[in-house]
Amino acid sequence: MQNPLAISGTVRATDVEGTLPSAHVFLSNTTFGKITDRQGKFQIKVDRPGTYELIVRFTGYKTFSRTLVIESDGIEGLEISLKPQNRDLGSFTIVAKNRSEWRKNLKLFKDVFLGTSSNAESTKILNEEVMNFYNDRENGKLIAFADEPLMIRNKALGYDIEYYLETFELFYTESYSRYLGYPLFKEISLSKPSSRVVKRRREAYLGSIEHFFLSIFEGKLLEEGFIVRTARDTIGGGLLVASDTVDISMTKVQSNITTKSMSFEDYLFITYTGAYETEEYERYKAMLMINDQVKRTGGRNRQRSWIKMVDQNKPILFESSGYVINPLDFYQYGFWGFEKMADRVPLNYRLNSEN
């Protein structure tokens, strides 16, 4: 096993002298994180080289984010300065927490953010009271934010998650949502996870979008169970899917060995042959009246998803871990659109490490 690689540095603030003790420093979407000591210093150790997103949070200050490429020597001596945060409420109307409208918005938020899968049924936000909601009636959208991290307990996958929510918007008319945040995963139990949790983690990872992009990076799409076809919109709605599979040799290596990019026209329609679509997903499709215009071949379908780029000039950038650097630059539909935070495992999850 490779020796751990260290990331170290000091956290300060622009409006006060000295350093910031007790700041939260972590690598987003992983289990790697620390709290700064009395001198504002931190050291995080990772188990392998790669590209990570370093996040620093301290109450009352803007989130600090920086992409780090960790090579064989690690990174030392980072100097990080946090800026004060001033939230501009603009013309939005905040929803009072003692009103039924707040409870209604909270349920809607949880359905969109945590999801409605079987894993979501065992996932709770432990500090729901920190949630705030704005109704932007002019633009027909709900905006959610929290000044404190959401403390999430996912019993199905055995993780406690600190989630720092940066953006959440739900557009009522389009039935479309977008959100961005930074999760830090922690094991609920210090002991070895149960066989049931190990099985659920494996199921959550296999066929996921991280699994897909990792398979592209390693050139193992078919070996890992993914079939990719092109697709386009039809005049009557739904997708027209090509019969021939796509060669994903269109990816090209970026400026460092850990990053690749991918661009395409219309849609990519991805079938994961290793698992079937769930009953919860069938109910989700019926509720949203989703029709992908693809006929069944008998029984349940294999997991099917499709993606579309927001801007052809902004390719999808992804790392050797399967992590997508710019997730807001492409749309996810189908099974991937159904999977939410309750179905996520950390980027440093290893498929065979718990067997």
Results as ranks from 00 to 15, higher is better:
residue 4 P to S: 14
residue 5 L to N: 13
residue 11 V to K: 04
residue 14 T to C: 01
residue 16 V to W: 00
residue 16 V to K: 10
residue 17 E to S: 04
residue 20 L to R: 03
residue 29 N to H: 11
residue 29 N to V: 00
residue 29 N to L: 02
residue 31 T to W: 07
residue 32 F to Q: 05
residue 35 I to G: 07
residue 35 I to W: 07
residue 36 T to V: 06
residue 41 K to G: 02
residue 45 K to A: 12
residue 50 G to S: 11
residue 55 I to M: 11
residue 55 I to H: 03
residue 56 V to H: 07
residue 57 R to W: 12
residue 62 K to W: 01
residue 69 V to M: 10
residue 73 D to R: 13
residue 74 G to T: 09
residue 80 I to D: 02
residue 91 S to F: 13
residue 98 N to Y: 02
residue 100 S to P: 04
residue 104 K to D: 15
residue 111 D to A: 10
residue 112 V to P: 01
residue 117 S to Y: 11
residue 117 S to H: 12
residue 118 S to D: 13
residue 119 N to W: 12
residue 123 T to D: 09
residue 126 L to S: 11
residue 128 E to W: 01
residue 133 F to G: 12
residue 136 D to Y: 11
residue 139 N to A: 11
residue 142 L to W: 09
residue 144 A to H: 08
residue 146 A to V: 13
residue 150 L to P: 06
residue 152 I to Y: 07
residue 157 L to A: 10
residue 157 L to Y: 11
residue 161 I to L: 06
residue 161 I to T: 10
residue 163 Y to D: 09
residue 163 Y to V: 06
residue 164 Y to K: 01
residue 171 F to E: 13
residue 174 E to W: 09
residue 174 E to M: 12
residue 175 S to M: 06
residue 178 R to P: 00
residue 179 Y to R: 05
residue 182 Y to F: 14
residue 185 F to I: 04
residue 189 S to F: 12
residue 191 S to G: 07
residue 191 S to N: 10
residue 193 P to T: 04
residue 197 V to N: 07
residue 198 V to W: 02
residue 203 E to Q: 14
residue 204 A to S: 15
residue 208 S to E: 02
residue 209 I to D: 04
residue 211 H to P: 00
residue 212 F to E: 04
residue 215 S to V: 06
residue 217 F to H: 14
residue 221 L to S: 05
residue 225 G to L: 00
residue 227 I to N: 03
residue 227 I to C: 01
residue 228 V to K: 04
residue 232 R to W: 05
residue 237 G to K: 08
residue 255 S to A: 10
residue 256 N to G: 05
residue 258 T to Q: 06
residue 260 K to M: 08
residue 270 I to E: 07
residue 274 G to Y: 02
residue 279 E to I: 15
residue 281 Y to W: 10
residue 286 A to Y: 15
residue 289 M to P: 00
residue 291 N to L: 13
residue 294 V to P: 01
residue 296 R to F: 05
residue 300 R to G: 03
residue 300 R to Y: 13
residue 302 R to A: 09
residue 306 W to E: 05
residue 311 D to V: 08
residue 311 D to W: 09
residue 315 P to R: 00
residue 322 G to I: 03
residue 326 N to P: 06
residue 328 L to F: 07
residue 329 D to R: 02
residue 335 F to I: 14
residue 337 G to R: 01
residue 339 E to Q: 15
residue 341 M to G: 03
residue 343 D to V: 03
residue 345 V to M: 02
residue 347 L to Y: 12
residue 348 N to P: 09
residue 350 R to K: 12
residue 351 L to V: 08
residue 352 N to D: 12
residue 354 E to I: 02
